[in-house]
Design a protein around this nucleic acid. Structure first.
Lengths: 192, 192
DNA sequence: GTCTATACGAAGATAGAC
DNA sequence: GTCTATCTTCGTATAGAC
């Protein structure tokens, strides 16, 4: 199955981007990690590295968006959404011994919004952030919070969790993420 | 004055790191941007790029730490510290037309805590985060908040502001930072 | 101190055979 | 579809002259 190798490359790219960053992840790394045949890169991704990274960011981002939307669809509390989001990140950090962080942030941090090819990547990460925001805001709104407030709370969640992941990786401890989770849960529980 | 060229290189490195990231910033870029003579790099920075980046991160980080400490020393409200921190970041974003973000996060996002030379950079960014945290926590504590709570609030501030900067850069709008500021100020004002 | 020239390695992309 | 070989570019670092 040809799409099998393709999907493997995307998943390997997610892992490697989260660990080594955009510039630090070479095509050959993705090939070695995924075991994909060398000659098939430009067959599956005609636009090269940018396309592969784009699809990797979408794949990782959409997984979280879908999880939040599912939770919200089941009438779940926004506090559970925080827990879900934080747990995903904590697992990535701990299971990699703090070598890996969030692939979306890694790409966003290394992409200038105006630099040629990277503009594409900037747009991709922007879309993921927007999707996360919409999903979280909807979950909060469904509990009776005004749209504007729900929006800013959702932004606070995403920003603080993503920022905490960066701090955790540098400090090699989950403490920042733990502290952010505690504060966010207390804040949201008091509002909804 | 020899230290003049040195300081110029450090300041140029701060700007370029914030704009193009760690791997995206070449030595030649720093030279071109600072106007420093080509042959003087390894004279001023014997350990090469790692040393230059290290000093640039320290320089940028210490400037913010000092500003917060000064504010706290004057008995300033923690809400003012939030305002100060956010304003610095907002100015960087807007004045660069969203090309530049936070240099500390840029380096932190691209440094693996275990990879050879980059371990040094990881330790440097970790120290900056810790300094920011201590300064903000002290300012909050001085208003009668329990140490542990002050600590987690400080972490929430740093994480959310830094995360918001990443989002702002990708989305080319200050909206995330504005929303985070509003939420943080309301939260802290209610506590102190 | 500052210069030029260069060694050395890495990575993206392409060409053409199988 | 997949392979190998190669082109081209680029960035760090060093060597040695001025």
């Amino acid at each position: 199955m040809p799409s099998d190798a393709r999907q493997k490359m995307i998943q390997s790219a997610v892992t490697l981007l989260a660990t080594r960053g955009l510039e630090g992840t070479a095509f050959s790394d993705v090939l070695a990690h995924s075991g994909a045949p060398r000659g098939s890169i430009y067959h599956h991704f005609p636009d090269g590295k940018v396309q592969l990274v784009e699809e990797a960011v979408d794949f990782a981002g959409d997984a979280i968006t879908a999880a939040i939307n599912q939770l919200a669809g089941e009438g779940g509390d926004p506090v559970e959404a925080i827990h879900l989001f934080v747990n995903v990140m904590r697992h990535v950090l701990v299971s990699s011994d703090f070598r890996a962080g969030c692939p979306v942030v890694a790409v966003a941090a290394e992409s200038s919004p105006d630099a040629g090819e990277q503009a594409r990547l900037s747009r991709t990460t922007a879309r993921v952030f927007k999707d996360w925001n919409a999903a979280l805001a909807a979950a909060i709104e469904s509990k009776g919070v005004a749209p504007k407030r729900a929006q800013s709370l959702a932004t606070l969640m995403i920003a603080s969790i993503e920022g905490a992941v960066v701090m955790c990786r540098a400090q090699r401890t989950t403490a920042p993420l733990d502290e952010v989770e505690t504060e966010l849960e207390a804040l949201v529980a008091a509002i909804v």
